[in-house]
Write a protein that binds this DNA or RNA. Structure first.
Lengths: 253, 253
DNA sequence: CGGATGGTTGAAACCGTTCAAAATCTGTGG
DNA sequence: CCACAGATTTTGAACGGTTTCAACCATCCG
C-alpha cells in the first residue's frame, strides 16, 4: 500500500523498497481538514512539512489591501516545498480548497531521513525543482499571456498533473475551483474569468458545468494546448517516459 | 579571499572554514561572457551549475511567438537553481544581461560535495528555497499589482539584493537593465515602462538617468516600498541581521 | 558623420476592470 | 415540499490602464 505521495516522488527517481516504507510511515496519520481552512499561515515558522494526500490545497500570498495571488496548487501527492528546512517565517500561507486529508511531517524526521538516505534526498530535490519549474511557467503565463491563453494553460496543466495521479477519466476531471479562485491564480478578475470560460465553451474547446458536479471535459486537447502555447517540458513528469507533449493515453507507469 | 558566491551562501547558514574553501575551489576559474549571450539554452541538458561572480544574468522563457518572460535575475553571488541535479532538459534559458564572469561548476563535483558535507547541502537548500520565495513574490507582483507598483517593487528588491553583496551606495545602484528588459520581467510593454518610470520620477521617488551612467537613486525608500506594498520577509537575507526594513507590519521574531 | 540601440512622445484601440444587478444552484429548517 | 439565506455564476454598461503603432529624439560608437 504505497501512498500517493511516494508514488509522486518516484516519478522523479525510483526509490528502494526500504525508503518507500519509511516515507510511507511519515504520512501514515493524515489530518482531515475542511474546505477553505489554513494549514500553515504566513509569518509563522512551520514545524512540519505539508503533504496533501486527498483533496486540493494551495499556496497563496495576500497584499495588504486584500488582493490575493495563488502561487501553487497542491494536488493529492504534492508536498509543500521544503521551506520548513529553513526554520524561518513562511512567506506565504497554505490553505485547503476542498475538504482534504493532509499529513504533517515533522521537519526533523523528514530531514533526518533525507540526510541518511540519498535516494530520499534526491526525491526531495526532484520534487522541489519541479515545483520551481511550475512556478516559472506560471510567471510566464501570468506575465505574458492573454486571459484565454492563461485559462487554457491552467486547465491543460491540471489535466496532465491529475493524469499523473490517476484523477482523470480520458480528458475529463473534477475542477473544484471557483471562478474567483481561478482569477486569483491567473491575475484576472472573476468577471473576466467567467466571460473567458464562456468563449472557450463556445469555441468547442471545453465543457464545464459550473454548478453541479463541477466536471470539466476537455473536448479538444490539441486545440487547448495550442491556444495555451503549452510546452510540457516543465512538468517533466518522469525520466522514464521522458514526457514531451500532449502525450495522451501513453502514461505507462 | 572568499568568493561572493560563498558569502552569499553563508547568509543562510554559516559554513565551516573547510567547506568554504572547497566551494571556493569550484568557482576558481570563471569564464568571461559578453553581454546578451546565452549561458545555458532551454531544451538542453546542462552539465554544469551556473554561478554568477560578476555582472548580471537572467533566466528567461520564450513563447513560440517570441514573447519573452524573464523569471529571475542572477546577480553576483547568485547561482542558477540546482536544476542540473535532474539531468533533464532545461525548461528555460540563462543569459547574460551585462558582460559577466560566470563559473560553471560540474554537476558531479557540486553534488559530491553536497552529499559529503551537510553544511554545503544546507546552503544549497537555502539558496534554492530563497530563489523559490523570490519567484513566488514575483508571481504576486505580476499577477496582482499595477504597473507602478510592479516597477517600485522590482527597484526596491534590487536595492536590497544588491545591498547584500555590497553593490550599492546609500540608496543608489547601477541598474543595467533596458526598459525592454524591465518590461519582460514585469509583464508590461516597454512603452508603458517608460511612462511609468516618468511618473515615479515626477513623484520624487527615484532618480534615474537612462542614458549615461545608468545610475538609479532611490530618493524616497519608504515611499517606494509603501507603493510596492513591499514585505521583505521573502528575501530573508539572513538569520543574523534579521530583516532590515521599513518593516511596517512589525512581526515578532 | 551615419547607423544602431534605446528612450520618449502622441493618439487610437482594446482588453480587462469595475460596479451593479440578476440568475442559478446548494443547503437548511420549517 | 417550500421558503429563504448564502455563495457562485452570469449579464450589462461604462470606464480606464495598458497596449499598439508610429514617429521622433538622444546617445553611443565605429
Amino acid at each position: 500500500m504505497v501512498s500517493v505521495w511516494v508514488r509522486r516522488l518516484e516519478q522523479g527517481t525510483p526509490l528502494p523498497h526500504d525508503d518507500r516504507c519509511r516515507l510511507d510511515e511519515l504520512v501514515a496519520a493524515p489530518v482531515p481538514f475542511e474546505a477553505d481552512r489554513d494549514v500553515v499561515v504566513e509569518g509563522r515558522v512551520s514545524p512540519d512539512a505539508v503533504v496533501v494526500l486527498q483533496g486540493w490545497a494551495c499556496r497563496y500570498k495576500l497584499l495588504s489591501d486584500g488582493r490575493r495571488q495563488i502561487t501553487a496548487f497542491l494536488l493529492p501527492g504534492d508536498m509543500c516545498d521544503l521551506h520548513v528546512f529553513l526554520e524561518q517565517p513562511m512567506d506565504h500561507s497554505i490553505g485547503t480548497l476542498t475538504p482534504a486529508r493532509v499529513a504533517l511531517v515533522p521537519r526533523d524526521r523528514l530531514l533526518g531521513l533525507a540526510r541518511e538516505r540519498w535516494p530520499v534526498m534526491q526525491a526531495l530535490w526532484w520534487s522541489t525543482l519541479r515545483g520551481e519549474a511550475i512556478l516559472r511557467e506560471w510567471l510566464a503565463v501570468v506575465g505574458r499571456r492573454s486571459a484565454a491563453e492563461r485559462i487554457a494553460h491552467l486547465l491543460y496543466e491540471l489535466l496532465l498533473r491529475l493524469q499523473a495521479v490517476g484523477l482523470t477519466e480520458d480528458h475529463a476531471y473534477v475542477l473544484p475551483l471557483t471562478q474567483a479562485e481561478i482569477a486569483d491564480t491567473l491575475g484576472l478578475t472573476p468577471v473576466h474569468v467567467n466571460r473567458t470560460l464562456q468563449t472557450l465553451r463556445q469555441d468547442g474547446l471545453i465543457e464545464l458545468d459550473s454548478f453541479g458536479n463541477r466536471r470539466l471535459t476537455i473536448l479538444d486537447p490539441e486545440g487547448l494546448a495550442a491556444l495555451a502555447d503549452f510546452d510540457a517540458r516543465y512538468l517533466r513528469s518522469s525520466d522514464r517516459n521522458g514526457a514531451k507533449l500532449p502525450d495522451r493515453r501513453r502514461t505507462a507507469d
